[in-house]
Computed example of a mutant assay.
Amino acid sequence: MGRGRDLIDQIDEAQGAKLARFVAGRSSPEEAAGVRAWAAADPAHADLLEALEEVWGLARDTEVVWDPDAAWEEVCRRREARRFRTQPAPAASRRSFSSGLLRAAAIAALVIGGVAIRAIVTRESEQAPREVAMHEYTTRRAQHARVRLPDGTSVVLSVDSRLRVPEDYGRGAREVYLEGEARFDVEHDVRRPFRVHAAGVVAEDLGTVFGVRAYPADTSVTVVVAEGLVEVKTAAPDRPEVAYRLEPGQLARVGQSGEVRVERDVDAADYLAFAEGRLVFRDTPLGEAAAQLGRWYNVDVRVADPELAALPLTASFGPEPIADILNLIALSLGIRHEREGDVVTFRR
Rank of each mutant, 00 (worst) to 15 (best):
267 D>M: 04
146 R>F: 08
207 G>A: 02
246 L>M: 05
42 D>K: 09
62 T>M: 13
237 P>M: 03
103 R>A: 11
176 V>Y: 01
135 H>D: 13
55 V>I: 11
165 V>W: 03
335 I>K: 09
243 A>K: 08
196 V>E: 00
40 A>K: 15
195 R>H: 00
97 F>Y: 15
1 M>L: 14
304 A>H: 03
338 E>F: 09
234 T>C: 02
337 H>Y: 15
152 G>D: 04
76 C>G: 13
44 A>E: 15
76 C>M: 13
194 F>Y: 08
19 L>R: 07
158 S>P: 07
235 A>H: 05
240 P>Y: 05
127 Q>K: 14
109 A>L: 08
92 A>Y: 01
240 P>D: 09
11 I>Y: 04
313 L>R: 05
154 S>G: 11
273 A>M: 02
331 L>N: 13
207 G>D: 03
284 T>R: 09
264 R>Q: 14
327 N>W: 10
113 G>E: 04
56 W>H: 12
307 E>D: 15
59 A>I: 12
212 V>Q: 00
327 N>L: 13
109 A>R: 09
275 A>H: 05
305 D>V: 06
159 V>W: 07
205 D>R: 05
292 Q>L: 15
141 R>Y: 10
35 V>N: 05
173 A>N: 11
207 G>Q: 03
23 V>A: 00
324 D>E: 15
198 A>R: 07
199 A>W: 04
77 R>M: 05
239 R>I: 06
196 V>G: 03
27 S>Y: 11
301 V>R: 10
13 E>Q: 14
272 L>H: 04
294 G>V: 00
292 Q>T: 08
231 E>Y: 03
107 I>R: 15
240 P>R: 13
282 R>D: 01
41 A>N: 12
314 T>M: 03
326 L>A: 05
146 R>S: 14
321 P>R: 06
120 I>W: 06
89 A>H: 12
343 V>C: 11
15 Q>C: 07
98 S>D: 13
10 Q>P: 04
233 K>N: 03
289 A>Q: 01
62 T>L: 14
297 Y>S: 01
178 L>I: 10
18 K>F: 00
344 V>N: 04
174 R>M: 01
330 A>K: 09
261 R>Q: 10
218 D>K: 11
16 G>Q: 04
302 R>G: 10
290 A>P: 02
157 L>C: 06
58 L>E: 01
90 P>W: 07
83 R>M: 11
325 I>P: 03
346 F>R: 00
272 L>T: 05
101 L>R: 10
175 E>D: 14
63 E>K: 14
310 A>Q: 15
215 Y>F: 05
